[in-house]
Computed example of a mutant assay.
Amino acid sequence: MSTDAQQQAAREWDHWHEERVATVSAPHGPLSLTGTHWLSDYPEGRIPAVVGHWREDGDELELTAGPEDGLTVDGKPFTGQVRLGADRGPIGGSRVAHGERRLVVLSREGLWAVRDFDPDSAARRAFRTIEATPYDPRWALPGTFRPYDTSRTVRVENADGVERGLGLGGEIAFELDGVEHTLQVAVEHDGSLWAVFADATSGNSSYRFRFLRPAAPAADGTVTVDLNRALLPPCAFADHFICPFPPPGNTLPVAVEAGERSRIDG
């Protein structure tokens, strides 16, 4: 990589890092999550921390609320009953709100939950920035994506201590200091890749695991493995996320001293 290309890549990384800090600290960013409430824990439909009555009904939830609950649905004051599917879009655009809070419907492996995002959360008020290592061209590596013949699902522990399935569509191979390494990856709807990985810094000078999201590979399978853009997972910002741990084989035996390292409060 030429000097000019390195300088451009470093400027792009600076912009990426600034955007990440802004996204994380946004009113309904990950720092605002104050609870993930599984309906299986509240069969009577009353969640102590959340107003309204929530009930599973087939492949949807049914929410019942009165005027005293102060809820809005689709931006309008709500009383009565409404059927809800899982929210897929941005948190700020979730259908149900309670004042500035957003109540997000979540579905995982047939179980339903309501997430409570509060812009006034203690974590958001305490947050200062994300500690990240400045861009280093050493960590921007050429790689190759090797798709699996059929997608695979492995059971991995999640941050809440529960095992869940993690879908994998292939692996990326890359060399670091002359040694080949591989990471198993999921393939997103847009063709981009997602890896959950750990390395020799994990739990020491960086969070216990991180995410990597390479762009979609080229037609010949080539892909850039830019470890400068290793991400902290959402559960690094709020304990109520259910991030998957790295699948077997996704712990690199080297110290990846690049990318996001930890959350800094102040």
Rank of each mutant, 00 (worst) to 15 (best):
T3E: 14
Q6F: 13
Q7P: 01
A9H: 07
W16F: 13
W16T: 08
R20S: 15
V21T: 12
T23M: 12
S25H: 07
H28T: 08
G29Q: 01
P30W: 01
L33N: 04
G35C: 00
W38I: 10
G45R: 11
D59V: 10
E60R: 15
G70N: 07
L71T: 07
V73F: 05
Q81N: 09
G85L: 08
A86R: 07
G99A: 10
L103Q: 05
L106N: 10
W112Y: 13
A113L: 03
A113I: 04
D120S: 15
A126E: 12
F127W: 13
T129E: 15
I130H: 06
I130Q: 04
P134D: 10
D136Y: 08
R138T: 08
P142V: 01
P142D: 03
F145S: 06
Y148F: 15
R152S: 11
T153E: 13
V154N: 09
N158K: 11
V162N: 14
L168T: 09
G170Y: 01
A173G: 09
F174E: 01
F174R: 00
L176Q: 04
V179K: 02
E180L: 13
A186I: 06
E188A: 15
A195K: 10
V196H: 03
A200V: 04
S202R: 09
P214C: 05
D220I: 12
G221Q: 00
G221D: 05
V223A: 07
R229G: 05
L231C: 07
A238N: 14
D239W: 14
I242P: 12
P246C: 02
P246S: 06
L252G: 02
V256E: 00
V256P: 03
R261E: 07
R263D: 03
D265L: 09
